[in-house]
Each structure stands twice: as structure tokens, then as C-alpha cells.
Amino acid sequence: MAKHRIDNNIRKLRFLRDEMTQQQLAEKVGVTRQTIMSIEKGKYSPTLELAFRIAMVFKVPLDEVFSYSDGESQ
């Protein structure tokens, strides 16, 4: 099975939203700051539901927040 990776632009999107803090984003999507931190660092891939909630907070399509790449395409 090819090694895959889910990258995200959450840090950049937070910066563009008046430096929204991780805590503020966590409260908006209903998770803990630890979870936002883990997602930002690429340590945890969120569920589809949480991914959509994050995209809705930033008012952008899902693929502007998350991008998928597998080992073969790199």
C-alpha cells in the first residue's frame, strides 16, 4: 500500500482570519486545542465531519484546507 499524506493549510488560514488562535478555532468546531494542534502538525487526520466543519469556519472549499498526496505521486 502506498504511503499517503494529508497536508493542510490551517495555519495559513488562521493567519488570514486575523490571527485566529488554535483555541478559538477549536471552540468553533467543537474539539480541544490539542486536536487542532495535532491536525496542524499533520499528526492526526480528522474525520470527514470535522474536516468539513473546519472548512466551514474559514468559508472555503474542503480542498483549500486539506490536500491529499500519496508516495507514488511525489
Binding site: G30, T35, L50
Partner: peptide, 10 residues
């Protein structure tokens, strides 16, 4: 007010 979310459950 620490609560359990999807990462905690996983």
C-alpha cells in the same frame, strides 16, 4: 472544562 473529542476517543 476539558471534554473528550474524536481524537481523545481514537
Amino acid at each position: 472544562d476539558h471534554f473528550e473529542d474524536e481524537l481523545d476517543k481514537a
